[in-house]
Simulated scan of single mutants.
Amino acid sequence: MDAAKKLDKVRIDRSLVDVHRNPRSSETVWGYVSAVGKKWALIANARDGGYPDGFTAIRLKDVIAVRRRAGFEDAFAKTRTDWPESPLHLDLDLEAVLPARPDVGVVATKRLRD
């Protein structure tokens, strides 16, 4: 299953996830998937305790693994009526729009070449 399908599945399930990216040394993004486009996905970030912490846009081609995160943070977050946050209304397929949004952190990594 490709990254877009995995991310869309956990978006529908409203599962708390870790999103691992290439290169493997990149920081793992964790939270709830808010939206999935053709090239980008929008993650509603979670911080310790399951509290909301803004949004991060990640390139689908950088995603190497999506893993559900079980534990108290997911259970706690699901008790809150304001979490996960509603997705922002932006076109994830227009790369030029993403950096212009001050409320979205864009995580882009370069692939390492041999």
Results as ranks from 00 to 15, higher is better:
N45H: 02
A57E: 06
F76N: 07
V107P: 00
A70D: 14
K110Y: 10
D13E: 15
F72G: 06
R68S: 03
E85M: 14
K38A: 09
S26L: 12
H20F: 13
V17R: 10
V97E: 13
S86V: 05
K78C: 01
F72V: 13
G71P: 09
I43T: 08
K110G: 03
H89A: 15
G105S: 06
F76T: 00
V97I: 14
D114G: 07
V29F: 00
H20P: 01
R24T: 13
I12R: 14
L42P: 02
W83A: 00
V63S: 03
A70M: 14
N45K: 14
K38C: 00
T28N: 08
A46K: 01
T28H: 08
S26W: 11
V97D: 12
V19R: 04
A108Q: 11
T56Y: 00
D103A: 05
D18K: 07
V19K: 10
R21H: 12
F76M: 11
I64G: 03
G71K: 12
S15H: 10
V10T: 15
D82S: 15
R11C: 02
A96K: 13
A44V: 04
K78W: 07
T56N: 03
K39F: 04
S34G: 15
A96C: 04
V63I: 09
K61Q: 09
R113D: 04
K110F: 11
I12T: 11
W83E: 01
N45Y: 01
I64D: 06
N22P: 01
I12Y: 09
Y32V: 03
D2S: 01
E27Y: 08
G50E: 05
S86T: 12
R101I: 03
T28R: 13
A70F: 11
K78Y: 07
Y32C: 11
Y32S: 08
P102M: 03
D103W: 00
T28E: 08
P102F: 05
L60T: 10
D13F: 08
L98R: 02
V10M: 06
P23I: 14
L42N: 04
T28A: 08
T81R: 14
A46H: 01
P52A: 07
R113Q: 09
D91F: 03
K61V: 05
V107N: 10
A3G: 01
K78P: 02
A100F: 13
R111I: 11
G50V: 09
A57C: 07
K39C: 00
L7Y: 03
L42A: 06
R101M: 07
W83N: 01
L94C: 09
R59W: 00
H89M: 05
I12G: 10
G49F: 05
H89W: 05
A41T: 10
V107D: 09
E27L: 11
L7Q: 05
H20G: 02
I58D: 01
W83C: 03
A44F: 02
Y51D: 00
P84A: 12
D74R: 10
T81G: 12
D62T: 14
A4M: 00
K38R: 11
R67T: 10
D114N: 07
H20Q: 13
K78H: 15
S86D: 10
T81I: 07
A4G: 04
S15K: 13
R80K: 15
E73D: 10
G49T: 08
L112C: 08
P84N: 12
A3N: 04
W30E: 02
L88C: 02
I12Q: 15
R101H: 06
E95T: 04
A46M: 11
K78R: 15
H89I: 03
F55I: 01
T79R: 15
D74N: 11
